[in-house]
Design a protein around this nucleic acid. Structure first.
Lengths: 216, 216
DNA sequence: CAGTATTGACAATCTATATTGTCAGATAAC
DNA sequence: GTTATCTGACAATATAGATTGTCAATACTG
């Protein structure tokens, strides 16, 4: 009875399980292919071949190419976000320690997994307004991990100036990451982290100055 | 005799003058159109219409769409670069003053001319390896205006770490600019300059620390 | 095993744009 | 005014890839 409501099983999975499995295979394949030839060079056909599926299943799970890019981005970002949050939490309460822990995890993963890194850093830029919005949101979230706005409740809805500070910080970190990756990791992780951290510290300290009424 | 070597005149210009005039009109039109619909949304036809020319003349001056993008970028960057250099020079010898002068000019121009700004900040990213190379080169040049590497000859070929510092600095400034533009200039120019300058100072001071043997 | 749901391969269609080609009319040179 | 050059409009072609559709083969169900 309980079964009769379900769809016919294939390979031990019901219809929905197979669908989500295919969806995942497509996302993994997309990350792979984007990493090789970039989003713009990636055809639907190529991704389907990499996923060992046919176009039909592409359109079963995604309305179009862009939807898959967004899903793949979300996939990569989700992992990274969870890991960074955990690393920061494990590092205790000191802001400087948490910052270092999060950055270290970030750059370590970047080095370990170049293809997802490319999706995360490069492929996501300038595709369409929808994609940009997704990216913007992700960056805000990462910025909050590095310099938590909730430390001081008064500041939790960041003022306009503080928001430019986070934006600058994230921009610096991402640019550093991009260069580091594209030059094939010439510096040790610790060294890159130290450099990135110095930019993050700007966002921390300047925000305090400004709050005290200093206008530089 | 002198004339007989020249091509027939039209509108008082010889063949080559007309060609360069058309080329310029195409570049101006491109900046205009990119500013409206973005590089990806810009068709050859639309640019030709904006320039009041036909496709024929497009291919007379440019091998393809991308070549025009690169030319338009160079055009915008060339102006900006000259102006920033001049502003820095006019500000005297103090590094802090020069920095402020250059940044002030940069953000002022950004606000005055949103369309070239879009070409400069957005459209140039992630089109192709060739375009990225052009951008990379431009950024290096701008970075050198903000924090001249030649101050200390020993440092003139920047070490790998110092190079990441400039990259981070430029990344921060550009991200700030992007956000500021896309939010339609919510802060005064001076305020944005102050924030951007604080990131630039990182590149200045950290470089010195590192040279003295400090490793953060 | 018979019947049906599901799959995989691939053809057909559709759309959009770049790029090249044609030609009649306009403009300058003499 | 005649001729050679240049111009503008537009048609023709080429390409590339997304999206949809067909159908036989396969895997499950009872």
């Amino acid at each position: 009875m309980a079964r009769s409501r379900k769809a016919r099983l294939y390979g031990g999975m019901d219809a929905e399980e197979r669908r989500t499995e295919r969806r995942l295979k497509l996302i993994d394949a997309a990350i792979e292919v984007y990493g090789e030839v970039g989003y713009r060079g990636a055809t639907v056909k190529a991704i389907c071949e990499a996923a060992e599926l046919t176009e039909r299943y592409f359109y079963e799970s995604f309305a179009n190419s862009e939807a898959l890019l967004i899903a793949a981005y979300g996939h990569v970002v989700g992992h990274l976000h969870d890991e960074m949050t955990a690393a920061a939490a494990a590092a205790g309460d000191d802001a400087e320690m948490r910052l270092r822990a999060a950055l270290t995890l970030y750059f370590t993963r970047l080095k370990e997994h170049p293809k997802p890194a490319r999706v995360f850093l490069l492929e996501i830029s300038g595709i369409s307004p929808a994609v940009d919005a997704v990216k913007l949101d992700a960056l805000r979230v990462f910025s909050d991990i590095l310099v938590p706005p909730a430390l001081d409740p008064k500041r939790s809805d960041k003022g306009a100036a503080a928001s430019l500070l986070s934006v600058g910080m994230v921009g610096a970190v991402i640019s550093i990451a991009l260069r580091w990756v594209s030059k094939q990791y010439p510096q040790a992780v610790e060294e890159v982290v130290a450099i990135a951290a110095s930019f993050c510290r700007v966002a921390l300290t300047e925000a305090d100055h400004r709050e005290d009424g200093h206008l530089s």
